[in-house]
Nucleic acid binder design. Structure first.
Lengths: 118, 118
DNA sequence: CCAAAATTCAACCGATCGGTTGACATTTGA
DNA sequence: TCAAATGTCAACCGATCGGTTGAATTTTGG
């Protein structure tokens, strides 16, 4: 609720969905779901430079999906499920009607759907 | 399961999460959750060109989130919740352990967490 | 028949993405 | 003490993003 530089829900969802829109970052999330790990170990399975994985982790961190604890020279990363829950809430808010109005396109098609015609 | 140009789950999730990583497109999804609509009507609330909204709709369509029915010169768009459900499944697969190992970072911190040290 | 409507297409633009490499700062351990 | 380890930073690169404008295409209605 700060007066300046207000961070909106849209800002947060932009960061969260963008962070998840990359398979390397999703793999990092999947890996971290099994437990905390340091950057070097996280980078090992991927065929790319450490710097590249480091940048991916920063993207996840900026989205709030990953927490980091620095102890000495090693950075230990861990999953923060809060933002994942936010994304999940957004999805279910606009998608959980797959019970009531399931497939509104099909119903639209057979109803003649004058609503959308000019 | 075609032999050539196999489309993987990662490919699909890339498209879906990318499509949702933009607030205009999320607003379009929110709008379409209330019912099918034609492109011009969908574009009206946004302060941008029709072509821009058209491109956003194509992104959503390529992700499978939006279906399109062309009747004459109007294109009627409708939500397809399938891909939203896929994204939801991914999220819950890697996030629903917020019951059992809730906040594995906190537990990691106080446990000494030799697992991740070198 | 023909102008207007609906929409995409094509070209362009600056910004961001996802990767690289090399330099840098800090910490560790022998 | 000092080399190796850990990780980020900075600069760079080509590709993609998100928007614009203007032209093209198709369909409609008078």
């Amino acid at each position: 609720m700060s007066a300046f530089a207000a961070v909106t829900d849209d800002d947060r969802l932009d960061l969260i969905f963008h962070a998840l829109a990359n398979r390397t970052r999703r793999a990092l999330v999947a890996r971290l779901a099994k437990g905390a790990a340091k950057v070097t170990d996280l980078a090992e399975p991927f065929g790319m430079s450490l710097a590249a994985v480091s940048k991916h982790l920063i993207v996840l961190e900026n989205a709030g999906i990953v927490d980091r604890r620095v102890s000495g020279r090693v950075h230990v990363c861990a999953l923060n499920t809060g933002p994942l829950a936010s994304a999940d809430e957004w999805l279910t808010a606009y998608g959980d009607f797959w019970n009531e109005k399931l497939d509104n396109f099909a119903t639209f098609v057979e109803s003649g759907a004058n609503e959308a015609e000019e």
